[in-house]
Amino acid sequence: MKRLWTPAWIARHVAMVALVVGFLGLGWWQVTRAAEGNALSFGYAIEWPVFAAFVVFVWWREVRHALRRPPGTDAPPAPSATADAAPAAGSPGVRRPVRVARVGVAGPEDGELAEYNRYLSWLNANPGARPGDYPG
Rank of each mutant, 00 (worst) to 15 (best):
A15K: 11
A85M: 06
V21S: 04
A101R: 15
E36G: 14
W29P: 00
D74R: 12
A86Q: 13
F42R: 07
Y44C: 02
A75Y: 05
P77V: 09
W59I: 05
G104K: 01
W48Y: 07
V105A: 12
P79I: 00
R61E: 12
V31E: 13
A45K: 04
W122N: 08
A88Y: 03
P77A: 14
R96Y: 03
P77I: 01
P127A: 10
W48S: 01
G22W: 12
P127Y: 04
A39G: 00
L40N: 14
P87C: 15
V21Q: 06
G132R: 09
P127T: 05
A11H: 02
A52E: 01
A34I: 06
T73E: 11
P76C: 01
V98P: 00
P108E: 08
T32P: 02
F23G: 03
G136K: 02
V50I: 14
R68A: 15
E115S: 06
S80G: 14
P135V: 09
A114D: 04
D84N: 11
L123P: 01
V56L: 15
N124G: 08
A101C: 02
E36R: 15
Y44D: 13
W9L: 03
P79H: 03
Q30T: 13
A83C: 05
P131H: 10
S91K: 13
A86D: 13
L19W: 02
A78D: 10
P92H: 05
G136Q: 02
P70E: 10
V50D: 03
M16P: 01
R3G: 10
R99D: 00
A66F: 02
W9G: 00
G37S: 12
E112Q: 14
R68M: 14
G128M: 05
W48I: 01
V56Y: 01
G107E: 09
A106V: 09
R12S: 00
V100Q: 04
A8I: 05
A45E: 05
A66C: 07
A34R: 09
A83Y: 11
A129T: 10
P87Q: 01
W59R: 09
G107W: 08
A66I: 01
T6A: 03
L4D: 08
V20C: 09
V31T: 15
R12C: 00
V20L: 04
E112C: 01
G25Y: 05
W48Q: 04
T6Q: 04
P131T: 00
Y119P: 02
L120K: 15
E109M: 02
V17G: 01
G37C: 10
W29Q: 10
F51Y: 13
L123Q: 15
I46G: 09
G111M: 01
T73K: 11
R69M: 15
P108Y: 00
T32E: 11
A8K: 11
V14N: 04
A78E: 14
F42H: 12
L4C: 09
L120C: 12
I46V: 09
A39Q: 03
G90Y: 03
G136H: 06
W9Q: 07
G93A: 14
R95M: 06
S41G: 10
V50L: 06
L19N: 14
Y44V: 02
I10V: 11
R102H: 11
G132I: 05
V14Y: 03
W59T: 12
